[in-house]
């Protein structure tokens, strides 16, 4: 079991290979569909003008994302009224929806680890090679278990995106995941996809 602490250095990333189990500790930020679209349109492609608190949030998240980790997660959070936030359930959401954005977000912010479920595609894999970075697979649906590794909710940005879509800054201790895409071009997902397609073709060719 390899220990990773955010911010993560390049050597630690290059040391990781597909199949390695890891335990993450330190600060990470949740970001999913709305957050990725917002980051790309406002700061990377600049097709949308920054407004409201956009620039303040950008300033605040930049140092956290540099060498940091993005977690694809829309948590169940207790204490919304009192703002004494506590993560109750916090498993990963399906990552592939961020495929159009993820690589560019990684390059722009120097994000070293993307955590989610289901894996990502060729664009993200290319960014993993360049930045360098890794894709870490958490167990989908293991929400109560993962929430227990969240020791503290440090704060929240873009709360108006809604609880699931907001950017939650959290401190984790021994958050469990497995490397399924590495910085050397390895992808467990591409491998399983290809193998299952060959098996499907064989099954479809057979008579009922």
């Amino acid at each position: 079991m390899k220990q990773l602490t955010m911010p993560i250095g390049d050597d630690a990333i290059r040391d990781l290979k597909v199949g390695d189990p890891v335990l993450l500790s330190g600060v990470m930020i949740t970001a999913r569909d709305a957050a990725h679209k917002w980051m790309i349109e406002t700061f990377v492609k600049k097709t949308r003008e920054a407004r409201g608190d956009d620039l303040d949030v950008y300033e605040a998240i930049q140092p956290l994302l540099n060498g940091g980790a993005i977690y694809h997660c829309g948590p169940v959070v207790a204490g919304l009224d009192s703002k004494q936030y506590k993560f109750v359930a916090a498993g990963p959401t399906t990552s592939i929806r961020e495929e159009p954005y993820q690589g560019d977000v990684m390059r722009h912010f120097k994000v070293k680890a993307v955590i989610g479920k289901g894996g990502m595609g060729a664009k993200t894999l290319a960014a993993c090679g360049e930045v360098p970075g890794v894709y870490l697979h958490a167990i989908g649906g293991a929400a109560s278990l993962i929430a227990q590794t969240v020791s503290k909710v440090v704060g929240v940005y873009k709360y108006d995106f809604g609880v699931p879509e907001a950017m939650w800054v959290i401190e984790v201790k021994d958050f469990p995941a497995v490397v399924t895409m590495d910085s050397h071009g390895g992808s467990l997902h591409a491998e399983i996809e290809a193998r299952s397609k060959r098996e499907l073709d064989r099954l479809l060719a057979a008579m009922l």
Binding site: G74, V76, V88, A89, T93, G140, A143, S144, A147
Partner: peptide, 12 residues
């Protein structure tokens, strides 16, 4: 764990 603590099995 979810059963014991009455917390959602999955956050979705």
């Amino acid at each position: 764990l979810s059963r014991r603590n009455s917390t959602p099995i999955c956050q979705d």
